[in-house]
Computed example of a mutant assay.
Amino acid sequence: MKFKLAAISMAAVLSTSSWAQAPVTSVGSSGSVNDRLAELERAFSARSQAQIDQQRQLNAMQQEVSELRGLLEEQSYRLEQVIERQRTLLMAQQDAADKPQNAPSAAAQSGGEQTSAQTRQSKESATPASGDEQAAYDNAVNLVLQDKDYDAAIPAFARFITQYPQSSYVPNAHYWLGQLLFTQKRFDQAKAQFARVVEAYQDSNKRADSLLKLGLIAREQGDKDQARQYFDQVLKEYGNTGAARLAQENINGL
Rank of each mutant, 00 (worst) to 15 (best):
A153W: 11
K224E: 10
S168M: 08
D223P: 08
Y238C: 09
A218R: 00
A208C: 03
A153H: 11
R196H: 11
L212W: 07
Q166D: 15
E237Q: 11
P165E: 10
Q233G: 01
I161H: 14
F160W: 06
K224T: 05
R159Y: 14
F187R: 05
I217D: 05
G215H: 01
E220D: 09
R219P: 05
R228K: 15
N240C: 02
Q221E: 04
I217A: 04
Q202Y: 05
W176V: 02
L211T: 02
H174F: 15
Q221C: 07
A243I: 00
D232W: 00
L180C: 08
N240W: 09
E220F: 07
Y201S: 06
W176G: 12
D223W: 03
D151A: 13
D203L: 13
R186N: 13
K185S: 13
Q193C: 08
K191C: 04
A218T: 02
A243H: 10
V198G: 02
Q202S: 09
S210E: 05
V170D: 06
D151F: 08
R219H: 13
Y230N: 04
L214C: 03
T183R: 13
A173N: 07
Y164F: 13
K206P: 06
Q179H: 13
V170Y: 09
Q179I: 04
F160G: 06
W176Y: 14
A152E: 15
A192K: 15
Q189A: 14
V234L: 00
Q184I: 07
D151P: 06
S167I: 13
A218L: 00
G178L: 10
D151V: 11
I161G: 12
L214A: 01
A190M: 03
P165S: 12
T183D: 08
G239I: 00
L214F: 03
E199K: 06
L216V: 03
F231L: 05
G222P: 09
Y175Q: 15
Q189G: 05
L216D: 13
Y238P: 10
N205E: 09
D223E: 13
E199M: 09
I161F: 05
D149M: 14
Q163W: 08
L180V: 13
A195Q: 14
Y150G: 14
Q184F: 04
S204T: 06
K206F: 10
A173E: 14
S204W: 06
A244I: 03
Q189C: 05
S168C: 07
A195S: 14
D225A: 03
I217V: 03
R186D: 15
D151R: 12
Q166R: 15
Q202G: 12
A227T: 00
R228E: 09
V234R: 01
F194H: 12
K224G: 10
K213A: 13
K191A: 15
R219V: 00
A173Q: 15
E220R: 08
Q233R: 10
Y169R: 15
Q226C: 01
Y238M: 09
A190Y: 09
N172G: 15
R228L: 01
R196W: 09
A195H: 09
N240E: 11
L211A: 01
A244V: 04
L211M: 05
Q233S: 07
A208E: 05
D225M: 01
S167Q: 08
S167G: 07
D209T: 00
A243T: 04
L216E: 13
